[in-house]
Amino acid sequence: MTDSGAMRRDPAAHLGGQEAPKTRDARWQAGAASPLATARLVLARDLKLAFRKRSQLVQPLAFFAIVTTLFPLGVSPELPRLRPMAAGVVWAAALLSSLLALELLFRDDAQDGTLEQYALSGRSLTWLLAAKTAAHWLLTGLPLALMAPLAAIALGAPGAAVPGILASVAVGTVALSLIGSIGAGLTLGIRRSGALLSLLTLPLEIPVLIFGARATELAIDGAAYGVPLRLLGALAVLGLTLAPLAAAAAVRINLE
């Protein structure tokens, strides 16, 4: 905890302040740090901070588990009835869990001034935010992709469907994290932004839901799921090229 405090006191230390280790500092000062190298530092720092608050890390996953549990309890315990809706349930739960973690994506860093330091650092804010979004995906998207097959099996999916579900959720959550970063950037300056954030983000995520649920459904049925998975990949690539730009613009507006 004390270590975390030190990190907080000089928010941008990991970008190469005076307290930062010599090697990193030197790399920074020399201007040798390419956007990619800077992004890697931000990513490492975000992961390190996240693992200090493990309970916060587990919350979206627990949320995912509880949402998928609500459906058998609300509909029926019979697997033949649950199976046709398994893909939709898993995806709706994944969308909501990813959303839940979004509010925290920029919040702490905005409050302690880290984001401002990023914006003033002269480094490309787009790259830094892309790194933060990557951390968000590693901390929520990837674990969700690992949990989704379990949830689907609990809802009646066969074991053979596991690779397809894993792949579709892993690719789809990339797009979710990216779209979400725009929403999180836009609502940065707003208090109690939860409902607004979901109203902004969820409609934009509908194509991801459609293609993702279709890929998962096909995987559960044992059919070829290559087409929707590729469409999902296309959405992720499109998001990768455009979303960090929009998120950086949004964050800048809210920092001014």
Partner: peptide, 22 residues
Amino acid sequence: DRASAVLAIVGVVNVPIIHYSV
């Protein structure tokens, strides 16, 4: 003005994607 402008632009990029995916 500026935040909602970003949202409108993101939205207009998304509208055709949403339409065709639907």
